[in-house]
């Protein structure tokens, strides 16, 4: 004969069980130290907020405070923190890659342009968009001297500037410049004959190379670098540095 054992549990036992459960809610709290030190970190701040649960690692990971209303948190801790983008659910963080960072133009022949390319790739994650800007430290400069290959001004009929790209098709026009090609490329680059010079650090502000105002994953632009020298250009090794800055939108 089947006996339902639940009905055999004594009421007194149930009362004790319920009381114990309620009491455990009051006492089961983690204690967090305010002064944290380790070989890697020395945190001197008076208040450190850590979410519930164990967050152990060789380094300390500090996250947003949860479990209170914003007003409650602001009143008790004196601040509120929101990290990331709440409304675009994307587990990927903001990332930026450049496919090739050493651009050796080889031996240059006067009047014969040399071109090289690399690819800039962005994933915004939860960010609503991004910009990638570029700036050079100086024009291509002789390592052992002060001679430079000037930055391009493109074709004579339509000169280009650090912000305005124009065609550079005349091989009798010398200099160094770039083109950007891709869905997110600056629309100044109408097609692959349009070039402009890089802005120079200390003189100009960085110029936008690619941008988008919606979330995106693996969005790529191909940058083409072009050098053309005249017959009177001094022989030697020329070099410069270009920095790309990838900033997410907020």
């Amino acid at each position: 004969m089947f006996t339902n054992k639940i009905y055999q549990i004594k009421p007194k036992f149930c009362k004790h069980l319920i009381l114990l459960s309620i009491l455990s809610l009051f006492f089961a709290k983690d204690a967090f130290a305010d002064n944290l030190t380790s070989p890697s970190y020395d945190i001197k701040m008076g208040t450190i907020n850590i979410t519930g649960g164990s967050k152990s690692s060789a380094s300390y990971t500090l996250n947003d405070t949860v479990g209170q209303t914003a007003q409650g948190e602001f009143n008790s801790a004196g601040f509120t923190v929101k990290a990331g983008f709440q409304y675009v659910l994307d587990p990927n963080p903001f990332s930026f890659t450049i496919s090739d960072i050493d651009l050796d133009y080889g031996s240059l022949v006067p009047g014969t342009p040399s071109t090289l390319t690399n690819i800039l790739t962005i994933t915004t994650g939860g960010a609503y968009g991004y910009t990638v800007k570029a700036i050079e430290d100086h024009s291509l400069k002789l390592i052992s001297d002060t001679d430079t290959i000037p930055d391009t001004s493109c074709d004579l009929a339509t000169p280009c500037t650090v912000s305005d790209a124009t065609p550079w098709t005349d091989n009798g026009r010398y200099g160094f410049g770039y083109n950007a090609n891709g869905t997110d490329a600056d629309p100044e680059f109408v097609n692959n004959t349009y070039y402009r010079p890089f802005p120079i650090q200390g003189t100009d502000q960085p110029a936008t190379v690619m941008t988008k105002n919606i979330p995106t994953a693996n969005s790529s632009v191909t940058v083409t670098y072009k050098v053309n020298i005249s017959g009177s250009q001094a022989a030697g090794t020329y070099q410069n540095g270009i920095q790309y800055l990838a900033i997410p939108s907020f």
């Binding site: 990290a83 990332s95 050493d102 960010a127």
Partner: peptide, 26 residues
């Protein structure tokens, strides 16, 4: 080809904070 790849997380932090208070964020 030598390449560069960088990632940052989070890419946005918004804070409201009272004078006299301090906070740390990773």
């Amino acid at each position: 080809h030598a390449k560069i790849g960088l990632t940052v997380d989070p890419s946005l932090v918004k804070i409201q904070i009272k004078p006299g208070k301090a906070i740390t964020k990773a």
